[in-house]
Design a protein around this nucleic acid. Sequence first.
RNA 1: GCCGGGGUGGCGAAAUCGGUAGACGCAAGGGACUUAAAAUCCCUUGGGGAGCAAUCCCCGUGCAGGUUCGAGUCCUGCCCUCGGCACCA
Length: 802
Amino acid sequence: MTQVPSYDPAVVEARWQERWARARTNEPDLDQPRRPFYNLMMFPYPSAEGLHVGNMFAFTGADIYGRFKRLHGYDVFEPIGYDAFGIHSENYALSVGTHPAKLIPQNIATFRRQLKRFGGMFDWRHELSTTDPRYYKWTQWIFLQLFKAGIAFRKKAAVNWCPKDMSVVANEQVINGYCERHPDTKVEQRFLEQWFFRITQYAERLLKNLDRLDWSDSTRTLQRNWIGRSEGAELIFETPAGAKIPVFTTRPDTVFGATYLVLAPEHPLVDQLTADEQRRQVNGYRREVQGKDLVSRRVGDRTKTGVFLGSYARNPATGEAIPIWIADYVLMEYGTGAIMAVPAHDKRDFEFATQFKLPIREVVRTGEPLPSVTEDGALMNSGEFDGLSCREAQRRIVAWLQAKGLATPQVQYRLHDWCISRQRYWGPPIPIIYCDRCGPVGVPAQDLPVLLPLIEDFRPDASGVSPLARHKEWYYAKCPQCGAQGRRETDVSDTFLDSAWYFLRYPSTEFDDRPWDPKRTTTWLPVTSYIGGNEHAVLHLLYSRFVTMVLQELGHVPFDEPFPKLRAHGLIIKDGAKMSKSRGNVVIPDSYIQQWGADTFRMYLMFLGPFQEGGDFRETGIIGIRRFLEKVWTTAHEAAHLTPGSALPPEVARKLHQTIKKVTADTESLDYNTAIAAMMEYENALRDAGCAMRDAVEPLVIMLAPYAPHLAEELWAALGHDRSIFHASWPSYDATLAAAGDVEVVVQVNGKVRGRVTVSRGASEAEVVERAMQDESVRKFVDGKPVRKTIYVQDRLLNFVL
RNA sequence: GCCGGGGUGGCGAAAUCGGUAGACGCAAGGGACUUAAAAUCCCUUGGGGAGCAAUCCCCGUGCAGGUUCGAGUCCUGCCCUCGGCACCA
């Protein structure tokens, strides 16, 4: 018996991590790659608790894919960085009383240590942090490109305002209308002038390009629904005084049933349309709505509220005067901020009309009870259009009203323009100087970055002025155009802007005179494979696509889609919910790695369930992976002591080729759990056959390398190789051999399994029928009755229908 | 309420094209080895029933229907659960 050393993951893993770093194993030649493969994973937000198991699940899955491609001969570039700006860091810093500029480097140091310990194939030369001035200089530069192109603009928009914090709070900080930090304080709305990006201008392109992206269908569906294209028409309702109220509707066919109008409370025409006797009530309602936070205005079936303005407008189809109301279920942000209410055929309008006793007129006969929303029906109560189908009527009615100047066909998107202003401290300052004479002026490129000053009192105070505005030496700056004294923009930008371009920066991190090097960019981008969480399926991905599209239009990058191939992984659930600090269910991987080793823990996470679906974190079962690795360890060491020569036993050879086939396919499709199961089966087969031959073991060690890289390196070296296993090639399989061998065909009688026959693969139907009829049990159930029909599925099943 | 996932043994799961439901692993039970224990190895393990036995029969993939020779897989309606959300006209 050969002497097999014992497996000590701590020693093995430290050894190989040190060797990888020394030999620069994971640093591809970015300038002269033969087969570049940009393997990107969504960078983490470096929280104070450290990298959690959910992060590690994501990174392991992405790393396995990168290593798999490396073994296929690609020059894999796998960078990592930190998305470290934002409200979370700032709030955390406030709560512990330490400056974020001090906290973040600590957090990053922890993350870096954890990322190195788990054995990711990261190219550490290209690490980046969004908080680094060398990085956010270019975030600001991108803002300026959009500003110059007219894509960045200012407008007023509502924010959540906590009177106690004297500060803006995010939607997620609003709990049932109250401030997260002050449970007794109601959050209000305030209207502030803010910077927006005109993403809506790109809605059609963002939507259309989805068709050619290699993304999962569910992610594309989420994006499509978010963009929310709907076709309809803008109809004009005129008041006796001549005011024109445009409304957007997807159902112009129901215009004869529009019995009142509803405007958003913020609608600019409300003042003008309010009758004197209603003014007090209207103003009261508007105040009430403004007193509500933004969050409680969304979601769910709420009781409808609203107020009559006391005035009327003319229905363009019927000519009758219908009342005008305001209600908070109509949003200023969508369409024209006004709707024609058709209570008979819209659920919300129906509820509202019922509550306020407004007339309901059925105009589509559908045979269903009101409100009937289907478009399968014929028009009624609609004058000359009676009897038409809804589709037909939509075209005809719009054409008819259009001729009278009262309608325009229109496409509306649910997507809003992107508000990038944050009334906060911890972010990149928006590089704008306000000048009384010149207006908002962009900071010249040579003056970038506009450094975020390291002020101690970044806490919002009672003045209600942004923290940055209190620092006069920073706040006042010369107008770049006329030289007069100007004031800096004191808002910082959204973290989604930081992460909307980080993939462009990674290959070019060493350049300070350009955001990305053109040659590096054409060599490595667009990103070959992007893997990240489904929770970012909408915002991050949409914003990145938008920024890339604009940069392409402006001539800065040669492609308009940054992520041609994307795969979304599932979430790791703990105690019935995703891991988050607020839920207190965060699991940190360190102790598991210490106890079991990174390789075991990586594989354990991947074996938990399907990578693209995620699963519940639990602690039982890690031992199973460890046992498997120990078995491979033993088998490989035994093989190392045998002299190669004789051919593999046929059943081992067959199983080997079947395994290579399955592991190759499953790893490519990210079905890591079943790939691991296949390797386990193979190792079991080797032990059953008592076969520890080099030709049987080496392919297994290579297949294991993406999953358990340190262990694979160690075994590869033990097998006598002196270069890293990642210079080896992925094993190929012989399809004929993989398909060889006998198969068991199930024999059914009337759909029930009554017997099994073993035949050689690809046997003819006649042969299988003959064999099946010899089976006693099958004969018993056929019982001499005539077989009406025989169904044969090659190599699988035979069914006699009597 | 809307959008997108998911629901299969005691547990995590597998079944890739409508064709043997439960691969692989955990846990549990039994056995071998050991002075003993740990580790390791071997066997059993969806539920119910028949048989001395080899073995055989019935039921079973959230619920109720449907299509089909055949449904975990397809269709209709519902329930539960996770993630996202901006009552989107």
